[in-house]
Design a protein around this nucleic acid. Sequence first.
DNA 1: ATGGTTTTTACTGCGTC
DNA 2: GACGCGGTAAAAACCAT
Length: 320
Amino acid sequence: MYPMRREEGRFNVSECPNCKEKLIGDVDRGEIFCPKCGFVLHDQAIDQSAEWKSADYEERMKRSRVGLPSTNTLHDFGLTTDISSDLRDSHGKYLDPYNRQTAQRMKKWQRRIRTSSSGERSLSIALGKITEAADVLGLPSSVIEEASHIFRKSAKAAVSKSKSISGMAAASIYLACRRSNVNRSLKEISKAAGIQSRAAAKYYRLLINQVEHNYIPPPSVQKYISKLVNKEKINPRVERLALDLAEKANESEISSGKTPAGLAAAYVYIASVLAGEHIPQREIAEFAEVTEVTVRNRCREILEKFVIRQRLRVAPEALT
DNA sequence: ATGGTTTTTACTGCGTC
DNA sequence: GACGCGGTAAAAACCAT
């Protein structure tokens, strides 16, 4: 997964090994990932910058803390108290019978309270679901945090009331991906969450209406192309050509209302033919998660435009 | 709810290896 | 014959109104 060879010692971290996109570093979470394909370069990278500075020992002691950083992915933010069961006091002495009884009662209630209310419990389940699905997809933990945060917000706003937990989890992850510029389709995510993408789309729209207030533009065709190429291990030449076509076609007239995925598939298909690689429509359609018919239709439209251009270019020569 | 647009489903015919 | 490709009609899904 991590393509660095130890003996080389050096690895250029500025671009993604899959799609050559410039990588984005997330200092807060200590990881670097590709905004196009979601490739995580170094999930366990250590944040080398000091979190705080201290002039002297006293101050350092004041500022240091104990425990893991709090996280959105656990229902209680990872902040929990455990009452130990060995029934000793803070000095290590055994408790007397009365205090022992009290401690046991406290322990029991603490355990019950932690996930007692139905809200807490479902939150806990949902966050687990999010983490699980995101892990399957190999998403960077910053996205998981974001998704968890989104889910919390939706739960607070009672958006997720009486909705499928998996559905809301998938929708949260998808929104988190969109926000973080990680190019994953709703289909992929719903599959990982074990849910129909149709249903997930519904929940996503809910989320958009209730939680998200900024318009998130859909990923560009170029991104889809890169993703597709990277997924299918296609010759980079084809990618270049496809991107070229997409740019030159300046497709404002053909693209409106069409799924970018289908368009990208068509460009890649045409590029593959032009480059003499000829990838079957069937395969491209499968990887782009659209139908062959859609690929064909987009192809037809693009080619119609290109034929006209070619005629215009060729016509003067034909006249001479 | 509805209507217009797009995508999918399912099927057929054509040419090539 | 299997395969890739192109097309079509009808159903399904999507989206704004």
